[in-house]
Structure formats: structure tokens, C-alpha cells
Design a protein around this nucleic acid. Structure first.
Length: 792
RNA sequence: UGCCCAGUAGCUCAAUCGGCAGAGCGUCCGGCUCUGGACCGGGAGGCUGAUGGUUCGAAUCCAUCCUGGGCAGCCA
């Protein structure tokens, strides 16, 4: 019986490799950005317990270490980001280590503490001050907030912003030496108090805190801020890919600033870079440290390892295998779009993992007595039963005692069964799994409650299979049972969602208002003797769910089993399992919503010209009226003075305003991003030459983009690039005909599918022709040829 | 209101340089002479948030808008 949890190396993963972060790493490896190093890190602050959301990050970071081990030098650091002495403690450090280890990961010797870098943070700050990039500010907390401005008002510089380097150095030294009280001074980066990005309005680098640090003691009274410390931690450890969650997106600006101002020029090309991915949001639970702590401290749950909690400790105690957590984390998707993951998704991952690892046994949770009248008292028949269903490639068996008195699940009997009920009812026959067919002949009631069923078994059906003659009359239902004399009493703890709202944080009121009062229900059941040994085996209680013994509360005298996950999705209508009508309804709602969006987006439209200054409008006028450039394009170009000048220059070389404008708006701007046109390695005249080549059909649009890429990279004369790569457009029908023939004969199956009606494949064929000709085929001619040949 | 991010099947996500819109879950149907559920097979399900533009060709590039989220800690 396998009880071990497979190691991460054994996780099947090829399909999970394709998220955007893996794409970035692939590209860095290809471009040799970091040589063959891939170094990631998991950087928790030791101020709380880890939860399933952290597991996603751990699996991502350590998963990269495993997934790239065959291609690169991979490491994943465990780094405690302990820069705030107020909240951190060694207990949390230990619990974090336990959690990472439990998940199956090994950081080897790479265990680091941000607090070990305090001296380096200090030295870098001195460098910044000397460069004039940081200053000591003596405003108090409230003033700093006021001076920062707001999202729609620029900030104002602090009166201390222009202190001399010497004064700053001296003040900063005194700050470190403990000559000031908390909050008297701070060190700030000198960036831009009027930046539209709030984060760049001179972010704080250091604050004074006379506090005891759990590792550094009282050595420091100067503590770095996250935005300053984090990039440096990454740089010190030579991290290559620094992965964090989406809410740090804004912080990346400071991250990059710190890198660029603290590191040496030659270190910059291979500096760490930050990428943000979506955090895990699981329905029907809460994930924030604050709320988890509240649940624990106010005794809503039974400690940090309460099996209803999404903490790693809770998952562990509940019996969820680490391999299941890993596969779940790999399946949820690492993207940049915020998302909520349904509980059914998580449970599916658990069942999927448990299915071929958990031996089947029978346990009755809510017992109803059954007497087999054609069996003698005291008679025990030991039946052989397989631990595994047919489709699992294992066959281990155990002996199950069959006796006159049995217990079945109360739910499996109905006095007045509905139409589709296939289990027991008066006069009905059912299969007792691994045992016999049993017919209920008598129902004994006390005070209106059914207390006992009596009936007979068909001795021909031993082992639960029917003799050939009875094949057609086999009962439809199969139920589980346990011998009354041999069954072992046990306590079953059945868990349900902790909250009854998908997002307990949403809406008014306290999140604890949404607690589900039935999140734990305790049952006193009966277990077949084969499962009695309280080891760490995870069992499937047939037709009930996966269970294991509670590691803390279960004893030889009093067995306690935790439900890991039920077999059936119990999340019902509130979750993903909507009925057809509900899905239909949802679809109608969505359609209607879309209509409303459309209406609103049409109403909200503004003329881009309205967004311009008077001067710029005059330019639009000129471009649009005189030069006949499309109004929107004219506005786009006129809205950026440098771009407009570039446009004017280009027109001096090639006077085709519409063509040049189109290229500027649609192609050049796409590449420009934050850059100004003045920073490009080519000028307006060269750009105009390129446009002319396309406009006069010397080049195809696709060929032109190849040339353009080259120009962006190295500058240069478009004509020369065209010649060097032999990109001139081919219009010659005969030459193209050969290419078309080749493409069609190379893809007979696709041709067939096209002729069967999958006309979208024309794009595929076009792509093939363009590839084959290095983008130089005249697309109109090629398309015509293809169409002609395909429609034959 | 400034800046940033995202929007693809009911849900979670894919879609390489702009070139066939796919997968898993859920749902429905069927299979498994021992699980109503696990497992296996199949079907249905799309105006890629909207409108315009660029292109032979747009989910992908450009513009404007719509919707949702993040940012104004001396937290991380």
C-alpha cells in the first residue's frame, strides 16, 4: 500500500510549463541573459503561517528549479524577508520551513535572511546619497503624507529635499547611531514628487525604529523599507527571475530604479527582474494573514492547523497529500489576470491524486441495523474483497467479515423511494458490495423511526456477482455495509466549506458573518476491521469519500478519521455545477450585459481631438484637411510633439502623408512604448524610405516589418537591409505558383479539411507561403493562387 | 479624477513572428455484469468586452470607449 507522497521530480508537468513566466525564462536562456543560471526565490516575511496561496508561489518558484534542472543551473532560495522587527518571530520562521519541506521542496544551503544584509543596505544608501539620489527628510509622518499629494494632484518637494550631500551623510550616520527618536527623520529616494505614479514620489528607503529584532537584537535602529530592500536582496543573491504577485506591479518602478541607481553599469544587463503573476483566490475561504489570525484567536476554529483552514498546517492535518497540493497549484494557471478558483477545482485535484493511492474500504457513517434472517447467529463468513476497483492497476485484497447483523448507511434506505432511487426500500433488492444480493422483507419502526431492516440474501450471489442466469435481474444499486459484530467504532469528522459565501470579504459586515455553522459535523460510524490500524494510510471509504486518521486526536481506543474530500462534488448550485437551464440563463445574462456595455461604450466615446491642446489641434487640422490624413491618426501624431516633428521630417523625404501616418501610428508606436522617437537609432528620412518601399510595392507589409525590426535593433538604411536579406517583393505568378504547389502537396490533410469546409485554413496556407518566401511573396497574388488551387 | 494591470466556452486557462480559436473542470449522453459519486468514451457549448482603424489576414498591432482590479503605510 503506497503511503508515500511522490517527490516533485515525479510530478508530471510538461503541460504546466506553458505559462508566461516559463516563456520569459525560455527566452532568457536562449538569449543568454543570465548564462545558464535560473535563480528564483520564495521570500516570505516570518510574521504568520503559510497558506495555500503561498503554496502556489512556492510551487511556482521551486517548480522552476525542478523543471529547468535538465537545461540550466537552477536554484531556489528560501529567503526570510525580515525587515520589520515589530511583527516577526522565530516561531514563524520554523513554521514556514516546515511548510516548504512538507510540500516536498529543498532549498539546500540557500537559506537567507534579509536582516543579514542590513549593513549592505546601509552602504548602498550611502552610495545613493553621494550620487545625489537620496536625502534625509525631517518632515513628520503626517507632513510627508500631505506633501505627497494625491492621485489627481502632484506632490510638493519637501523643504529638506535639497540638503547637501555632506549634511545628508552626517544626518544618516547619526540616524544609524541612534541619535534620533523614531520618526524624527527618514531617508528618501530623490525621484520625482510630481510623478503620475504615486510610488515614485520620493519613496521612503529607511525609517528609524528603536525595536528589538528577533535575529539582529538591538544592533540596528534603522530599518529598510520593502521597496528598497527587496531589489537589493535579489541583487545580492543574484536572483534572475523575481516573481511576486500582481499587487506589486506598481512597485516594479521603484524596483527598477533601485537597481539602476545602486548597481554598477556592468551588472545591469544580468540584474534580477521582477515579474508579477496572479495570486490564488479560493472560493468559500479567506486567505489573508489578518483574517486567518482573527479566526484562530477568536476561536472560530481550532488552531492554525484546523483542517477547515486553508493553511498549509490545516491541509496537512486534514490529510491532503502534498503531491495533490502541488498538482493543484500547477493547474490553477499563472497569468496576469485576476481570478477566483472554485473549490470544486481544488477538490478535483485532491480526488485525482487520491484515486490511485487510496485503498478502498467500507465504513458506515450513519448506521442503520440490518438483520439477515437466513444467516445463523454467530456465523462469520470471511469474504475476499479487492482494495482497488477494476480500472486501477493494483490488486491487493483483504478479508471482510459477513455476519447476520450488519449496518448500512441510513441514507441508503427509503420507506417511500422516489422513482429514480436505486437503493433499498421495502421489498427491494440491492447488492451489498463484496457480499450478497439482499432483499428487504420487513421494516421495524419505533416511534415512527426506522430502527431495523430484516430480509434475506441470495446465497447464489456470494461475492456480489450474479450467476449467469441472474444477469438481467441484477439489482441496480450497490451499497456498502459493515458487520455489526466485527465493525470498529470510530469518529468521523466531516468537513464542509468554512464560509457560506464564495467571497466572504465582499459585501457589508464582518467576514465572520458568513461563517458556515455546519463546517464541521461529527459522526459516530463503524469501520470494517481491515482499516483499523491507525497509520498514515489514506483510505477511500467507498461511496463516501477519502479519509485518514487524525494525527493528533486519534488513539487506539478512540479512532478519529478526518474527511479529506468527499467523493462527490457537494458544492452544488452555488458553484460550477450549474444545470443546463442555469447555464442558459447565465448566458442570457451575459449577453444582456454585453449589450449594455456596448451601449455605454458607444455613449462614452470621445473624439481624440478633444483631448488635445489648441496648438496640437491646429496641427491636426493641417494633417487632416490639407494632407488628407485620417482624423484619428492625425490626432495621434499631433498629440506627441516629437512624433509630429518626426512625421514632418519623414514627409520631406517621402511625401505620402497617409502611408507615412499609418506606419507611424500602427507600426512605430507599437514598438515605441515608453521611448521617445528621438531615442531611435534611425531618423525620419530613413523611416520614410522604408514606408516608400512598401507603398511602391517593392516590399510586402511583412517584409517591411522584418526590415523595421532590424532598423530598430541596429539602425541603418532600409534599402541596404532589403538587399542583404533578399526581401524584395515577388509578384511573379509562376514563381509563386511553385511555392503554392509545394505548400499544398506538403499538407494534403489540411487541403482535405479545407475542402470539407474549414476555410479558416486559408490563413494557415498563407502563412506557409509567406514563410517559404521569407515574407516576400505578394500576398494578394499568393492568396488568389491559393484560392484558385484549393477551389479546384 | 492621474497612473498601472486585466477582459477568450458556464468556470479556470491556452493559442509561437499577426496565419487552423484549443484544453481541463462543469454540464448532457453512453460505457464499466461490484462505488449514483471514482474511472473510461463521446456530444453540446465562442460576434475573443465594444466601436472604428492598420493589414492579403487581427484574440494578438493602433485609437477611443466600457467593465473589473491595484496604487496616495515610516507594512510586505
Amino acid at each position: 500500500m503506497s503511503t508515500d507522497d511522490s517527490t516533485p521530480d515525479a510530478d508530471p508537468s510538461p503541460s504546466d510549463r506553458d505559462n508566461f513566466i516559463y516563456d520569459i525564462i525560455d527566452q532568457d536562456l536562449e538569449e543568454d541573459t543570465y548564462g545558464d543560471r535560473v535563480v528564483t526565490r520564495f521570500p516570505p516575511e516570518p510574521n504568520g503561517y503559510l497558506h495555500i496561496g503561498h503554496a502556489k508561489s512556492i510551487v511556482l518558484n521551486f517548480g522552476i528549479k525542478h523543471d529547468y534542472a535538465d537545461r540550466a543551473e537552477t536554484t531556489c532560495h528560501l529567503r526570510f524577508d525580515d525587515t520589520n522587527p515589530d511583527t516577526e518571530s522565530p516561531e514563524y520562521v520554523q513554521s514556514i520551513k516546515d511548510a516548504v519541506q512538507w510540500l516536498g521542496y529543498d532549498w539546500e544551503e540557500h537559506e537567507y535572511y534579509a536582516s543579514d544584509y542590513f549593513e549592505q543596505f546601509y552602504q548602498y544608501a550611502i552610495t545613493l546619497i553621494k550620487q545625489g539620489d537620496a536625502y534625509v527628510d525631517s518632515l513628520d509622518e503626517e507632513e510627508i503624507r500631505e506633501y505627497r499629494g494625491s492621485v489627481d494632484e502632484p506632490g510638493t518637494p519637501s523643504p529638506y529635499r535639497d540638503r547637501s550631500v555632506e549634511e545628508n551623510l552626517e544626518l544618516f550616520r547619526k540616524m544609524k547611531a541612534g541619535e534620533f527618536d523614531d520618526g524624527e527623520h527618514v531617508l528618501r529616494a530623490k525621484i520625482d514628487m510630481s510623478s503620475p505614479h504615486m510610488i515614485m514620489r520620493d519613496p521612503l528607503l529607511f525609517r528609524i525604529k528603536h525595536a528589538h529584532h528577533y535575529r539582529q537584537g538591538d544592533d540596528w535602529c534603522l530599518y529598510p523599507m520593502y521597496d528598497y530592500a527587496h531589489p537589493l536582496e535579489d541583487a545580492i543573491e543574484d536572483i534572475t527571475h523575481s516573481l511576486c504577485t500582481l499587487e506589486f506591479d506598481n512597485n516594479r518602478r521603484v524596483y527598477d530604479w533601485v537597481m539602476e541607481h545602486c548597481l554598477e553599469e556592468d551588472e545591469l544587463p544580468s540584474r534580477p527582474r521582477q515579474y508579477e503573476f496572479n495570486r490564488l483566490n479560493l472560493d468559500y475561504t479567506v486567505m489573508s494573514k489578518r483574517r486567518l489570525r482573527h479566526l484562530v484567536e477568536e476561536d472560530y476554529v481550532d488552531g492554525w492547523d484546523d483542517p477547515r483552514l486553508p493553511t498549509i498546517a490545516g491541509l496537512k492535518r486534514r490529510g491532503i497529500p502534498p503531491s495533490a497540493v502541488r498538482s493543484f497549484c500547477r493547474s490553477v494557471g499563472v497569468t496576469r489576470s485576476q481570478s477566483r478558483v472554485q473549490m470544486s477545482h481544488f477538490e478535483h485535484a485532491l480526488r485525482d491524486d487520491l484515486n490511485d493511492r487510496a485503498p478502498r474500504v467500507m465504513a458506515v457513517l450513519d448506521p442503520l441495523k440490518v438483520v439477515v434472517t437466513n444467516l445463523d447467529e454467530g456465523e462469520v463468513e470471511w469474504l475476499e474483497a479487492n482494495h482497488w476497483p477494476r480500472d486501477i492497476d493494483k490488486d491487493e485484497t483483504r478479508e471482510v467479515p459477513f455476519t447476520r447483523k450488519l449496518y448500512i448507511e441510513r441514507d441508503d434506505f427509503r420507506m417511500d423511494p422516489p422513482e429514480d432511487f436505486t437503493r433499498l426500500a421495502p421489498g427491494r433488492e440491492v447488492r451489498l458490495l463484496n457480499g450478497y444480493f439482499f432483499t428487504c422483507e420487513e421494516v421495524i419502526e419505533e416511534d415512527g423511526e426506522v430502527v431495523e431492516l430484516r430480509g434475506t440474501i441470495d446465497p447464489e450471489t456470494r461475492g456480489g456477482s450474479s450467476p449467469d442466469g441472474r444477469r438481467d435481474t441484477s439489482p441496480e444499486g450497490s451499497i456498502h455495509w459493515v458487520s455489526a459484530s466485527h465493525g470498529v467504532p470510530f469518529e468521523a469528522r466531516v468537513y464542509d466549506r468554512l464560509f457560506d459565501a464564495p467571497n466572504p470579504r465582499a459585501g457589508d459586515g464582518e467576514f465572520t458573518d458568513h461563517l458556515n455553522p455546519d463546517s464541521l459535523s461529527v459522526r459516530n460510524g463503524l469501520l470494517e476491521p481491515a482499516a483499523e490500524q491507525p497509520d498514515a494510510t489514506r483510505y477511500q471509504f467507498i461511496r463516501e469519500g477519502y479519509y485518514w486518521t487524525d494525527p493528533d486526536d486519534s488513539t487506539d481506543d478512540h479512532l478519529v478519521f478526518n474527511q479529506i474530500v468527499p467523493l462527490r462534488d457537494t458544492w452544488g448550485d452555488t458553484d460550477s455545477s450549474l444545470s443546463r437551464e442555469q447555464i442558459e440563463e447565465r448566458r442570457r445574462e451575459k449577453e444582456q450585459e454585453k449589450q449594455e456595455h456596448r451601449q455605454r461604450s458607444l455613449e462614452g466615446k470621445t473624439d481624440p481631438v478633444d483631448l488635445l491642446s489648441d496648438e496640437q489641434r491646429a496641427r491636426v487640422e493641417h494633417y487632416h484637411e490639407t494632407l488628407d490624413v485620417k482624423r484619428e491618426s492625425a490626432a495621434t501624431i499631433a498629440g506627441d510633439d516629437a512624433l509630429a516633428d518626426f512625421f514632418d521630417t519623414a514627409l520631406d523625404t517621402y511625401d505620402a502623408p497617409s502611408a507615412v501616418a499609418n506606419w507611424i501610428v500602427n507600426e512605430l508606436r507599437a514598438e515605441l512604448k515608453d521611448r521617445s522617437v528621438n531615442a531611435l537609432p534611425f531618423d525620419g528620412a530613413q523611416f520614410a524610405n522604408l514606408v516608400q518601399l512598401v507603398d511602391t510595392d517593392e516590399l510586402t507589409g511583412r517584409g517591411a516589418r522584418t526590415v523595421f525590426d532590424e532598423m530598430l535593433e541596429n539602425g541603418g538604411d532600409p534599402d541596404a537591409i532589403v538587399d542583404a536579406h533578399d526581401l524584395r517583393q515577388v509578384d511573379d505568378t509562376e514563381a509563386l505558383d511553385g511555392v503554392v504547389t509545394d505548400v499544398l502537396t506538403d499538407n494534403p490533410d489540411k487541403v482535405e479539411r479545407y475542402r470539407d469546409g474549414k476555410t479558416g485554413l486559408l490563413g494557415f496556407f498563407m502563412g506557409q507561403v509567406m514563410d517559404a518566401t521569407n515574407g516576400s511573396a505578394n500576398p494578394e497574388v499568393a492568396r488568389e493562387l491559393l484560392q484558385e488551387r484549393l477551389d479546384e
